[in-house]
Design a protein around this nucleic acid. Structure first.
Length: 850
RNA sequence: GGGCGCUUAGCUCAGUUGGCUAGAGCAUCUCGUUUACACCGAGAGGGUCGGGGGUUCGAAUCCCUCAGCGCCCACCA
């Protein structure tokens, strides 16, 4: 025997993958209807997590299925420079060496990080291979490849020319640790307890004081007004009067603005336009100056000597102390409020004013909304579309600037003599350029990573290059990613693609939920509950992981990860392996099959079962219902092929069909368990091709009647097994029948399957009658055993009576008979007849026992 | 405040035009080593499909309502 007793995935997987890759099996064939999907590029120098394994597994199932069904198929892999993520890691490295980013210029940093990434890049790609992903590696795109940068510049230029790009002073979410601004959606908002201080600002024009409430007293130095609600009776008379800003001696005005909520705090708010997004807007409405008092490094500036250069926390303490000394603090209350955090460092985000590049989003969002309205993109699950619509309707302009050297430089230059004169120019390697005698200095910022990632589908397929090899694959067929990237990524891809190419980037979006740990907790490094997919691959095999991940998982739904399911997947692979071993044992090592033909009852039945499975898999996979498809495949192989067909085959020799059943099983299972199926395929003497490239199975002719008759055999077998195991002791019994062609012709089969002692034709019934509706058969058991079984029969009788009652009720309901589909009514009638016949037999049996 | 989702067997979850006795994996119980497989085989137990109401011949599935849980977005100074 060639095959080892148990399937050991690690012995075969790397070789099988190499076989696929070197044979060019991942490349599109150039014939058939195009199918394309694009990998959300994983961090080039990171490790994959279970989310990747799920994502890539699902997409690979569809890819392999499409490839086998004759499509011109491509799965384009990617690698992400992961601008910010990588930058954080690299900056930590620099720190270890006692250096910082300020010791180098942009070019130096860029090339250093490039080397750093290059060193570890292969790691990720190896892991993708270990997962069995059938990606076209020759077409891999790295997010800093030339073609990415060219396209991104082209897009930026287009927006620039259309007047959608502008520079603006806005409040940005600023990380003082990493010295860069964040997009709104990169800020982590957390609810927490804080203190609200009530601080008295003395009146100048009137007598007394106005008490404002603030959670950030240190920003007081940047106040340029106090705001109240215009209709608030408490303060109405003070609107337009002046107050003294404590600790500074500066005079500021009390203004009226609808933004103020009279019910919150004291109803009076200090306005700090430079350090709060709302205050910024109030400031704009009232033409207030906006002095900056916190610098980009998180330290106080433009404040009195004693506070100058302090960190924010320290400044707060000292400000409070100073206010206390002047007896200006009226009250302290504890409140719950949201604070924005740097999702990377966990430190608070400072809202600061900075000049940034912005993209006007409304025209883009409008096109996206129209496309969604026209259902040009189908979502799985469908409901997620609404979240996107909501996001698009409330779209805000996109801050494209990042102050990180590791990214694509923004191709813009500023006139050194005229700060408002910016020009587009791609010569980003030059610090200064001279055009028409004017000197321009380059922008040092880079693009937000999502600006380039957002163009991924049309970059990777060369959609903008006419006549290119890959452009036939755009728009792509399927995009699959986590729900969490819906607005961050999916929305941007749709908007950018529609605007730049005029087409949607993909026709279907499948959103998978998060893979949680076994206690339904989010996996995170800090909790230490992260499971490394590579360890699971090493322990159980790549196929087992894939099967375990997709099982019982529906789109958009977060779900706990369970090793049990991976183990079940491993067991399945081993089951498949042993079916192959049985076939090898039966067929020998040089078997060459002829055209398969169904002969026996079980032959017809297994062909029918495989046809049903095939149709179910096709229907569910076309609808991206992976778990259901996997389940249909699993049960066809295990329950039908292994439990019934292999068992029955021990008593028959239809070797051509056995080979066909094995081939068909392997084909149906291949998308779900690529390694083990290909490994087996390679051992089969009658194949010299690769399973990955074979065609999806064709079903041969069979007789439905014969298949149905095997169903009756199964019923006899099941009943005999059931009755035998319910009897006391572990004896094997004989089966007797009077006149029954089916039993007579299939005696050996029934005997083996039901583990009977013998099957004999008799003149007189004896023993225990089986509860069958089509056949008469008796288990040949001794008198004594019969008695003990009586109770069993009575219970069976009661259940059957109940079932008859239900069916009769249904059939006596005129509405049911008239309105339900005829086939259902027929079915019910047939069932009723069967059950009634069964009652007859049971009664008869009990009669005999008396 | 706005939006989305969840509640089905002991556990984790499927269940897509509403239709046969509501399923899976794991766990539990009984029996069994029959040469493909103990990563196994045969059999069994276990569910008022969160509560209530409605539509329908028929509801886990559609509608209303109540309760509990979770996520996302957005301005509480």
């Amino acid at each position: 025997m060639n095959l080892a007793k148990a399937y050991e995935p690690n012995q075969y997987e790397p070789n099988i993958y190499a076989l696929w890759e070197t044979s060019g099996s991942f490349k599109p064939t150039g014939t058939g209807k195009p199918f394309s999907t694009v990998m959300p590029p994983p961090n080039a120098n990171g490790n994959l997590h279970l989310g990747h394994a799920l994502d890539m597994g699902l997409k690979d199932i569809t890819t392999r299925y499409k490839r086998m069904t004759g499509h011109d198929t491509i799965y384009i892999p990617g690698a992400d420079h992961a601008g910010f993520e990588t930058w954080v890691v690299y900056e930590r490295e620099l720190q270890k060496e006692g250096k910082s980013r300020f010791d180098f210029n942009r070019e130096e940093l860029y090339s250093q990080v490039w080397d750093f990434v290059e060193k570890q890049r292969g790691n990720m790609e190896l892991q993708v291979r270990a997962l069995g992903v059938s990606a076209s590696w020759d077409d891999l795109v790295f997010t800093l490849d030339k073609k990415v940068i060219e396209t991104v510049y082209g897009t930026f230029k287009k927006f620039w020319d259309e007047g959608l790009i502008y520079r603006g002073e806005r409040i940005v979410n600023y990380s003082t640790k990493y010295q860069t601004s964040y997009a709104d959606i990169e800020v982590d908002h957390k609810m927490e307890k804080g203190t609200l201080w009530h601080v008295a600002y003395p009146m100048i024009d009137k007598i007394g004081e106005i008490v404002i409430a603030t959670s950030r007293p240190e920003t007081l130095f940047g106040d340029t007004a106090v705001a109240v609600h215009p209709d608030d009776p408490r303060y109405k008379e003070f609107i337009g009067t002046k107050v003294m800003l404590p600790l500074t001696g500066r005079e500021i005005e009390i203004i009226a603005d609808e933004y103020v909520d009279p019910k919150f705090g004291t109803g009076a708010v200090k306005i700090t336009p430079a350090h709060d997004p709302n205050d910024f807007e109030v400031g704009q409405r009232h033409n207030l100056p906006r002095p900056q008092v916190i610098d980009f490094d998180g330290k106080m500036i433009n404040v009195p000597e004693e506070f100058l250069g302090l960190e924010v926390d320290e400044a707060r303490k000292r400000t409070l102390a100073a206010l206390n000394a002047q007896e200006l603090i009226r009250k302290e209350e504890t409140i719950e409020h949201t604070v924005g955090y740097d999702y990377k460092s966990g430190l608070p985000i400072q809202p600061l004013i900075k000049e940034q590049w912005f993209l006007k989003m409304e025209p883009l969002a409008k096109k996206a909304l129209e496309a969604l309205e026209a259902e040009e993109i189908i979502f799985y699950p469908a409901g997620r579309k609404n979240i996107l619509v909501q996001y698009l309707k409330n779209i805000r302009d996109w801050n494209l600037s990042r102050q990180i050297p590791w990214g694509i430089p923004i191709p813009a230059f500023q006139n050194v003599d005229d700060p408002n004169d910016w020009i587009f120019n791609e010569n980003v390697d030059e610090k200064t350029i001279v055009i028409d005698g004017k000197t321009y200095q380059r922008e040092e910022d880079t693009f937000d990573t999502w600006f380039s990632s957002g163009q991924w589908p049309f970059i990777t397929t060369d959609a903008l290059k006419e006549g290119s090899d890959l452009s036939r694959f755009f728009p792509t067929e399927l995009m699959e990613t986590g729900t969490d990237l819906l607005d961050r990524w999916i929305a941007r891809m749709i908007m950018l693609s529609l605007h730049v190419t005029g087409k949607v980037p993909f026709k279907n979006v499948y959103l998978h939920g998060m893979v949680l740990d076994e206690h339904s907790q989010k996996m995170s490094k800090s909790k230490g509950n992260v499971i490394n997919p590579m360890e699971l691959v090493a322990e159980y095999g790549s196929d087992a992981l894939r099967l375990g991940l997709i099982a019982s998982r529906s789109p958009g739904q977060n779900q706990a990860f369970s090793v049990d399911r991976v183990i079940a997947g491993r067991n399945f692979c081993n089951k498949l392996w042993n079916i192959a071993r049985f076939a090898e044992h039966k067929l020998g090592e040089d078997f060459t099959p002829n055209a398969p033909e169904a002969k026996s009852l079980v032959d017809h039945w297994i062909v029918s079962e495989l046809e049903t499975a095939k149709k179910t898999i096709e229907r569910t996979l076309d609808d991206y219902r992976y778990a259901e498809a996997g389940e249909a495949m699993y049960h066809a192989v295990w329950d039908s092929v292994a439990d019934w067909y292999v068992e029955a085959s021990k008593d028959q020799d239809n070797l051509d069909l056995l080979a066909w059943v094995l081939d068909t099983s392997l084909k149906l299972a291949h998308p779900f368990a690529p390694f083990v199926t290909e490994t087996i395929w390679q051992t089969l003497p009658w194949h010299n091709d690769l399973l990955i490239n074979t065609e999806w199975p064709e079903i041969i002719d069979y007789s439905e009647i014969a298949a149905g008759e095997f169903g009756q055999v199964q019923e006899i077998v099941s009943e005999a097994r059931f009755v035998a195991t319910s009897l006391p002791g572990n004896d094997r019994y004989g089966l007797v029948y009077l006149e029954d062609t089916l039993l007579e012709e299939n005696a050996d089969l029934v005997k083996r399957l039901a583990k009977l002692k013998e099957i004999t034709k008799a003149d007189q019934p004896r023993g225990l009658r089986l509860a069958l509706h089509n056949h008469d058969a008796w288990l040949d058991v001794p008198e004594k055993t019969l008695e003990e079984h009586k109770e069993n029969l009575e219970m069976r009788l009661a259940t059957t009576h109940q079932e008859i009652k239900t069916l009769e009720g249904r059939l006596s309901n005129e509405n049911y008979v008239n309105k339900a589909p005829a086939s259902l009514v027929e079915e019910s009638k047939k069932q009723l007849e069967e059950k009634q016949a069964l009652v007859e037999r049971l009664l008869h049996e009990l009669e005999i026992l008396k």
